[in-house]
Design a protein around this nucleic acid. Structure first.
Lengths: 189, 189
DNA sequence: CTGAACATGTAATTAGTTACATGATTTC
DNA sequence: GAAATCATGTAACTAATTACATGTTCAG
């Protein structure tokens, strides 16, 4: 999957691994992230496969850079992948739900504490997403032809992120109430 | 993570790999799934680590079974893990959002088609979750002491699943409208 | 007679994470 | 003087997926 993300970004402009890492961190990371180690190794593999070419750029003062350019084959590979619709529901992995599922044996106060901590993180994430929607995307929009449809799709992904975080916060509040109401009755304490 | 899930289920009763696979498929799979190959190999590893013990049960007619029992060490490992709260937001991986993010270059009709297909899958999943909440969990509840708090936590995870699917469906509808409204203007066709 | 359910495994591969490794420049 | 930014890589490891492999019983 990370290979398609890299190709997707390289379609906008040639970039280095470092640039790609930053592009991911400030945009797709809320639905797909990658460590720099994976990015660099994947780019090398993609070069072997003819999907990208690279040129080494010597710099003074600054570290050298390796600039990657998407090839025709790379563009085709990306387009082919996009053409092929997703036919199943991708699996979800939610650590907190695993923990909660087996939390009956835990001290309910500790469970609620954990939920509150997670809640805080979701609130923070929500703020980041609002910032992405109102600042980052408009900024990026300014760098590409104004008639490009891309920002519509970028906003759609952020919109999902926002809805998800809002839903999550709401669910945590509700879950805390349920635990407080039914698992902490006085005779149990 | 799968090791903790296996321990979590083994706390209820000794089970075979096959049983565990089924338990996962009918309960945690909407937030964490595993293939049988991973389950069997993980159980073997856990046995080496002293978290479980197994006994081979010879059967006639039916294939033989290997029954796993959680050890004291296994119980402690699970409890320790549950005690240690989750401090970060786990990363999300959403294939559809990756595809959508880079979909500006696609035929918008094809994008909408894909969204509609996904919508259908989410509707189906939602039905499964409603069934889990109203049938599967009450059934499982009947098998354990009625005062056990477990079903409350099971329901909480299903509640998240339901909220998630509802949110997703709503977002797809909204996204289709956005694409129809702004990316399919007549002069472009 | 076909397919599902029961039941367990191994092998090969891919994907992803964590740790190791370096080093200059700029900002506080 | 410390921390952040720029910049790229390798190595080791863990997790997860896909494919290979086998064989009986029971229901439709």
């Amino acid at each position: 999957m990370i290979d398609y993300i890299l190709m997707g970004f390289l379609r906008y402009a040639p970039m280095t691994g470092y640039d790609l890492k930053q592009a991911i961190d400030t945009s797709t990371s809320h639905f797909w992230h990658a460590h720099h180690s994976q990015i660099y190794t994947t780019l090398r593999q993609m070069e072997k496969d003819g999907l990208v070419t690279s040129q080494f750029i010597q710099q003074v003062g600054q570290p050298n850079r390796r600039l990657y350019v998407l090839t025709e084959a790379g563009q085709r590979a990306l387009q082919d992948w996009l053409e092929q619709p997703l036919m199943e529901l991708p699996a979800i992995k939610e650590d907190l739900l695993v923990r909660l599922f087996f939390s009956a044996a835990r001290d309910p106060h500790k469970v609620i504490e954990e939920l509150r901590l997670q809640r805080q993180l979701h609130v923070q994430k929500l703020a980041v997403l609002h910032h992405t929607a109102s600042v980052v995307i408009p900024e990026e929009h300014a760098k590409i032809p104004p008639e490009a449809r891309d920002p519509i799709f970028w906003q759609a992904t952020v919109s999902m992120g926002i809805k998800f975080q809002e839903m999550y916060i709401q669910w945590i509040d509700e879950t805390i109430r349920v635990i407080e109401g039914s698992a902490m009755d006085p005779e149990r304490k």
